[in-house]
């Protein structure tokens, strides 16, 4: 397993990668890409949902709620 792929997979799946060691290198790379894509997609979806939520809040609460949601 390539070290950069191992590092990324460990960041998502934890240190023990025994579970995915049966996959060939190409599969591990694809898994890494799929996880990164999912992570980015989720971050985008949550950001959009959070922005929508903040927009709907009464004006005095927007700043506070925005900060809580990390916007």
């Amino acid at each position: 397993m390539r070290s950069d792929v191992r590092d990324k997979l460990q960041a998502f799946l934890g240190d023990d990668l025994t579970l995915v060691e049966a996959l060939p290198d190409e599969g591990l790379t694809r898994l890494c890409t799929a996880l990164e894509t999912a992570w980015r997609g989720q971050a985008r979806a949550l950001a959009a949902a959070s922005d929508e939520a903040v927009q709907q809040m009464p004006a005095p609460l927007r700043g506070t709620i925005g900060k809580i949601l990390g916007r």
């Binding site: 799946l13 579970l19 995915v20 190409e26 989720q42």
Partner: peptide, 26 residues
């Protein structure tokens, strides 16, 4: 499909770890 070699139990465990990673974020 590339995860097929892990078998049903392996794919399930992988999914559970993926769910953990994604849901614990934020």
């Amino acid at each position: 499909e590339f995860t097929t070699p892990l078998g049903a139990d392996g794919i399930r465990e992988l999914r559970e770890r993926v769910v953990g990673a994604l849901y614990d974020e934020h």
